[in-house]
């Protein structure tokens, strides 16, 4: 479904992605882990075509996207629903306007049908009666749920969660984890979860990749993570500062 081959991307002198190879299969929940600042979000934006790679190829549904024009990229992007790290809800729009944003921009759906669809989608993520509130009036967990509702309302094939549990309390984390698992089953989508929180990520994932120093140094099933002998992955799992991962090696 998503295939990356030797993807490189730098910002000025800084090489963030140094040849990433990755293969995400249709229908699975794939977990991308890495330290904070490892370039996970850059990798995500590159997959979405928001950033062009300096070299390498990216295929979505067997279609190579790195050389596509802006307008064709926009069409490809509609296959994705993205839940941003800090929710990225439009702060000048109400919850109803945020969730219906895609429908308003790309469909001729009537206001009444849109209202109905928004209520259904909000119910799917466990929210009700908040349509007329603004994002700043919501808690962190509620904002995440609204962001998920906004990402799934147009039935995308692939749902990407960027650090879905960052900045929310442990109970809200558990609810979000259950929600991601539930939506994956109900919507039959391919899910890509990007996080530095391995413990939470493993509750969701089928397969895992570990991004370190701009490269994928581990890719395998979640059972393989527990049995790994890779010292760098072990250090990351154990969360200890001393080990083969140097401080500067993000």
């Amino acid at each position: 479904m998503i295939k990356l081959n030797n993807v490189q991307r730098s910002f000025g002198e800084k090489n963030v992605l140094k040849g990433v190879n990755l293969n995400i299969n249709k229908g699975e929940t794939f977990l991308l882990i890495g330290r904070s600042g490892a370039g996970k979000t850059v990798l995500l934006k590159t997959i979405l075509g928001l950033l062009r790679p300096d070299s390498g190829t990216i295929s979505i549904d067997s279609q190579e996207i790195t050389q596509l024009s802006k307008s064709r990229l926009e069409k490809i992007r509609l296959k994705f629903g993205l839940v941003f790290q800090n929710s990225a809800l439009f702060d000048f729009l109400t919850v109803w306007e945020n969730v219906s944003f895609f429908l308003k921009q790309h469909t001729d759906m009537s206001r009444k049908d849109m209202r109905k669809k928004v209520s259904q989608t909000l119910a799917l993520v466990g929210l009700a009666d908040i349509e007329d509130m603004y994002p700043y009036e919501l808690s962190g967990g509620m904002r995440k749920r609204v962001a998920i509702a906004r990402a799934i309302i147009y039935n995308p094939k692939i749902v990407i969660y960027d650090e879905p549990t960052t900045g929310i309390d442990p109970i809200a984390v558990d609810k979000i984890v259950s929600l991601i698992k539930d939506l994956h089953k109900r919507l039959s989508v391919t899910s890509l979860v990007v996080t530095h929180d391995l413990e939470t990520g493993l509750k969701i994932a089928d397969r895992v990749a570990f991004l370190l120093g701009g490269k994928i140094i581990f890719e395998g099933k979640k059972e393989d993570v527990k049995n790994t002998k890779d010292k760098r992955l072990l250090q990351f799992i154990q969360g200890v500062s001393g080990g083969p991962i140097k401080e500067m090696e993000v």
Binding site: K45, L48, L50, E74, K75, R77, L78, F80, L82, F84, Q85, N86, A88, L89, F90, D91, F101, F102, Q105, H106
Partner: peptide
């Protein structure tokens, strides 16, 4: 502030 809070990226993701 929309750019740094990724709202501008969100627009692009939604094809706007």
């Amino acid at each position: 502030s929309m750019k740094i809070s990724e709202q501008v990226d969100a627009l692009e993701v939604f094809g706007v």
